[in-house]
């Protein structure tokens, strides 16, 4: 007999508990979103530059871009975070915690975006450049008005993939003691000796990635007007 009311009681208790968790987790979400937004805004233009570097006519610039991509993609982001925050002060370069995160994340993601954009730019037919040239367009105009819009459309699915990965990668900032969503959940989990906060954090991540997936889908649809 008591089981139903017991179940009800347990459910209410759980709900109350989750509600009590929300403020702490929300402040974690704020940090997660901050890292996410800054990284996205910085790394995408940087990625375009990296792609242009990779495709540069100057051999030295191509080499440098290649080296950069190799180093950044070839080492874990966690290590890069540690290196920038703890390593660079050894040679006198000191960044704050959040700036270190921003630098490591945007440098890291710029390399990935750079490779995606490079593929996108390389996939554009030479004829597009020649047509623009015959129409008197400058290099800059050609890139911004003709090439880039087509590259954006072609690379959007791959970029979307990285965006979702980025949401989850933000959890790595724990190594610098920043309490993003996952760490906020861990604090609660250790205090209350339960897994529930981690489950709630998981739901938060799903909501975040769900929203971004939707946004990116709409962008893809917006670009679907041709071909």
């Amino acid at each position: 007999m008591g089981t139903i009311s017991e179940l009800m009681g347990n459910t209410v208790e759980l709900l109350n508990y989750v509600l009590a968790l929300l403020p702490a987790l929300m402040s974690g979400v704020v940090i997660t979103l901050k890292v996410f937004a800054f990284t996205l805004v910085l790394s995408i233009p940087m990625g375009i530059l990296v792609a242009l570097g990779r495709l540069s006519r100057l051999r030295i610039i191509r080499r440098l871009a290649q080296l950069y991509i190799w180093v950044v993609r070839g080492t874990p982001l966690l290590l890069q975070l540690i290196f920038i925050f703890f390593g660079l002060p050894m040679i006198g370069i000191v960044f704050s915690r959040f700036n270190s995160v921003m630098i490591a994340f945007s440098l890291n993601y710029a390399a990935y975006y750079g490779e995606i954009f490079r593929g996108g730019i390389a996939s554009i037919d030479r004829g597009q450049y020649e047509a623009a040239e015959m129409l008197g367009m400058s290099k800059r105009q050609t890139f911004l008005r003709v090439i880039l819009p087509q590259v954006i459309k072609r690379t959007l699915p791959a970029v979307a993939n990285e965006v979702i990965t980025l949401v989850k990668d933000t959890s790595l900032v724990y190594i610098l003691g920043l309490s993003e969503l996952l760490r906020a959940a861990k604090i609660a989990a250790n205090r209350d000796v339960t897994l529930a906060p981690l489950v709630v954090a998981g739901v938060f991540y799903l909501i975040l990635t769900g929203v971004f997936t939707k946004v990116l889908q709409q962008m893809e649809e917006r670009y679907a007007y041709y071909e």
């Binding site: 968790l21 702490a24 604090i187 609660a188 250790n190 205090r191």
Partner: peptide
């Protein structure tokens, strides 16, 4: 995350 020495309330 070190309850009870250092942790955060809700």
């Amino acid at each position: 995350t070190f309850a009870p020495l250092g942790f955060r309330t809700t």
